[in-house]
């Protein structure tokens, strides 16, 4: 059963042959430089906030990673749709790479948010609408990854994961909406670009954060995709070799 699917891959799609390429190496160097710029502006040049103190610097990583965790989910949903529609193995792996990186960024968002919450609110966790919906997003992504990593046939695994990945977006929306009206514990929005409190160097640092974290995201998705692609190639090749060996054994005896 597996051999059929494996055989059709190489004919239909052409993919990367290694994890690195000239373009991504340049992208990686730019990413590193931008991270250096972020460190410079975020930790050194930008001032401490009047209310939040030094903790405000966490925002330069926190806000972009939260945004990119949503981007990752959308990527997964898009990849899942195209997989279900065209049976494209390439897009299935894009969905997988997107979900894994999205899970990482969601975790990063939660972790940085908690580190920020402790000095600012006095507690690590508040049952706030944003925190709760982000935590739910994390759990949904873990569910997707659990399905994607099932020990089952590729077709079974990919199709089921794609359905779960597709449902990620309405779920995120429903969870976000439902917790918005939840209880009155809701904190006032603390981090918003529209707020007049972010100006000058702080605004520029946040912008730098967006650029460099986005670059990290892109770099990671590309590389995760390539590793996943090559993994599948190795699996397919291993299987082909094994089958050839068995055939040879059969001929000899």
């Amino acid at each position: 059963m597996t051999t059929e699917t494996v055989g059709s891959v190489e004919a239909s799609d052409s993919g990367p042959t290694s994890t690195g390429s000239r373009t991504t190496m340049i992208l990686g160097i730019i990413t590193l430089i931008s991270l250096g710029v972020l460190v410079l502006f975020g930790l050194i040049l930008s001032p401490a906030d009047a209310n939040q103190g030094e903790a405000v610097r966490i925002m330069y990583v926190h806000v972009p990673s939260a945004t990119l965790s949503y981007v990752g989910c959308f990527l997964t949903a898009i990849g899942s749709v195209v997989y279900l529609w065209r049976k494209s193995r390439w897009w299935e792996l894009v969905a997988y790479a997107g979900a894994e990186v999205a899970a990482l960024f969601t975790a990063l968002t939660l972790a940085t948010g908690m580190l920020w919450g402790r000095p600012t609110w006095g507690v690590f966790w508040v049952w706030d609408a944003r925190l709760t919906s982000e935590a739910m997003l994390m759990l949904l992504l873990l569910g997707y990854l659990a399905v994607r990593r099932l020990a089952a046939d590729y077709e079974v695994r990919a199709k089921r994961a794609a359905i779960v990945g597709l449902l990620l977006v309405p779920n995120v929306f429903i969870v976000r909406q439902s917790v918005q009206w939840w209880r009155t514990l809701h904190q006032t929005p603390t981090l918003s670009l529209s707020g007049a409190e972010i100006q000058g160097l702080m605004l520029f640092s946040l912008f730098t954060g967006f650029v460099s974290i986005t670059l990290v995201f892109i770099w990671m998705v590309i590389h995760r995709f390539r590793v996943a692609w090559l993994e599948e190639q190795v699996d397919a090749e291993g299987l082909d070799t094994a089958i050839a060996e068995r055939r040879a054994e059969g001929l000899v005896s």
Binding site: M136, L139, L140, L142, G143, A146, V147, L150, V164, L167, N171, I174, V175, Q177, S178, V179, W182
Partner: peptide
């Protein structure tokens, strides 16, 4: 083990509602 992991986060809005 998989069903609760998949289903309970999805049903969270229903639980709230």
């Amino acid at each position: 083990t998989l069903l609760p992991l998949l289903l309970l986060p999805v049903l969270a809005p229903v639980l709230i509602g």
